[in-house]
C-alpha cells in the first residue's frame, strides 16, 4: 500500500504535471519542421531578429554614421554595398535599418493584437447590439483608405519612429478583428462550449479559457503576415517623408535613392530593397506554412 502511494508520488514528480501532454503547439511545430522551405524562412527571420537586436545594442554597425570612404563609392571589395553621399557604408545602414523594420513589425503587432482580439471576440461571442456596434466601428474605420489614415495619424503625432509604430498598429487591427469574430462565432456554438456552460462555467471562462485558445492560431498567422505588411508600410511612410528620421531605415534609404538613381547610383536602393525582399518573402512563406501547421481542421479526424 505504502509502495503504491510512493509510486504515484514519484510518477507525479517525474512528469512535472500529469495533466500536460504533447500539446497541439508542439504537434504543429513537428509538422512545420518537415517543411524545409518554411524552416529556412524561419531561420532567415531569426537571423534578421538577431541582427536587429545586435545593432540595437550597438554591437554591430554602430559606426553607420561615420564617414568611411569617398562619396558614392561603387560596391566592391572594400565596401560590399558601396557608400552613400556622405561616404557612409551602405551595408551598415542596411543592417541598422533592420532594427527599425523588425521593431515596427513587432510593436505594431503588439498594438494591433489586443485591439483586434478583444473587439473580435466580444463581437463574435455576444452578438446582438455589441456585435452591431463593433462591426459598424470597424467597417467605418476600414472604409477610410489606409494610406490616408496613416498619413493623418503621422501628421497629427509628428514625425518619428513612435508615430510609425502607433500609426501602423492602429490601422492594421481590422483584418484580425474580422477573422477572430468569425472564428469565435463558429466556436461558440460548438458543443464543447455548451458543455462548459453545463458544468457551470460563466461567459468569461467560456470565452477566455475555451474559445480564445482555439482561435489563437489566427493571431500567430496574423503576426507573421503583419510583420511584412508593417515593414513595407514603414518604407512607404518614410518614402513619403512621414517616417523615421535621425537613423537609417530601409524607407529613408529608398527615399534617398530618388535623387541618386539619376546619377547612376543604384546600390543604396538595391541594398535596402534586397534586405526587405528577403525578409518579406520569408515572412510570407512562413505565414502560409504556419497556417497549414496550426490549422486545427487538419487534426483529429485523420
Amino acid at each position: 500500500m505504502g509502495m503504491s502511494k510512493t509510486e504515484v508520488l514519484v510518477n507525479n514528480t517525474q512528469a512535472s504535471d500529469p495533466l500536460k501532454g504533447k500539446s497541439l503547439w508542439i504537434d504543429a511545430w513537428q509538422r512545420l519542421k518537415k517543411d524545409k522551405v518554411a524552416v529556412a524562412c524561419l531561420i532567415i527571420v531569426i537571423l534578421y531578429a538577431i541582427v536587429a537586436v545586435l545593432s540595437g545594442v550597438g554591437l554591430i554597425a554602430a559606426d553607420w554614421g561615420a564617414e568611411v570612404g569617398p562619396s558614392y563609392a561603387a560596391p566592391g571589395a572594400d565596401y560590399w554595398f558601396g557608400t552613400d553621399i556622405f561616404g557612409r557604408d551602405v551595408l551598415s545602414k542596411v543592417i541598422h535599418g533592420s532594427q527599425v523594420a523588425m521593431s515596427v513589425g513587432l510593436i505594431s503587432s503588439l498594438i494591433a493584437i489586443p485591439i483586434g482580439v478583444t473587439l473580435g471576440a466580444l463581437a463574435g461571442y455576444f452578438g446582438g447590439w455589441v456585435d452591431e456596434v463593433i462591426v459598424w466601428f470597424y467597417t467605418t474605420f476600414s472604409s477610410i483608405p489606409q494610406i490616408m489614415l496613416l498619413m493623418s495619424i503621422a501628421l497629427i503625432l509628428g514625425k518619428g519612429i513612435n508615430t510609425v509604430y502607433i500609426a501602423l498598429g492602429l490601422t492594421s487591427w481590422v483584418g484580425l478583428c474580422r477573422l477572430i469574430r468569425g472564428e469565435v462565432m463558429k466556436h461558440k456554438n460548438r458543443e464543447y462550449v455548451q458543455a462548459a456552460g453545463a458544468i457551470g462555467a460563466g461567459h468569461g471562462r467560456k470565452l477566455f479559457k475555451h474559445i480564445i485558445p482555439n482561435v489563437s492560431h489566427i493571431v500567430i498567422i496574423f503576426t507573421s503576415l503583419q510583420f511584412q505588411i508593417a515593414i513595407k508600410s514603414e518604407v512607404i511612410l518614410s518614402y513619403l517623408g512621414l517616417g523615421v528620421s535621425g537613423q537609417p531605415s530601409w524607407g529613408t534609404m529608398i527615399d534617398d535613392a530618388k535623387l541618386e538613381l539619376a546619377r547612376g547610383v543604384w546600390w543604396q536602393l538595391a541594398g535596402a530593397t534586397l534586405a526587405m525582399f528577403v525578409v518579406v518573402l520569408a515572412f510570407n512563406i512562413l505565414g502560409d506554412a504556419l497556417r497549414d501547421a496550426l490549422d486545427p481542421k487538419l487534426k483529429g479526424k485523420d
Binding site: 501532454g21 458543455a195 457551470g200 482555439n214 483529429g300
Partner: peptide, 27 residues
C-alpha cells in the same frame, strides 16, 4: 449534467483530458 451527441466537437481540442476532467471539479 449533459452528454452531447458529437464526441468530436464536445471536447475542447486545446485541453488535455486531465484538464477537461479537472475543470468541473475546480468550478
Amino acid at each position: 449534467q449533459i452528454i452531447f451527441q458529437d464526441p468530436y466537437s464536445s471536447l475542447n481540442p486545446r485541453m488535455t483530458v486531465g484538464e477537461i476532467l479537472l475543470e468541473p471539479m475546480n468550478l
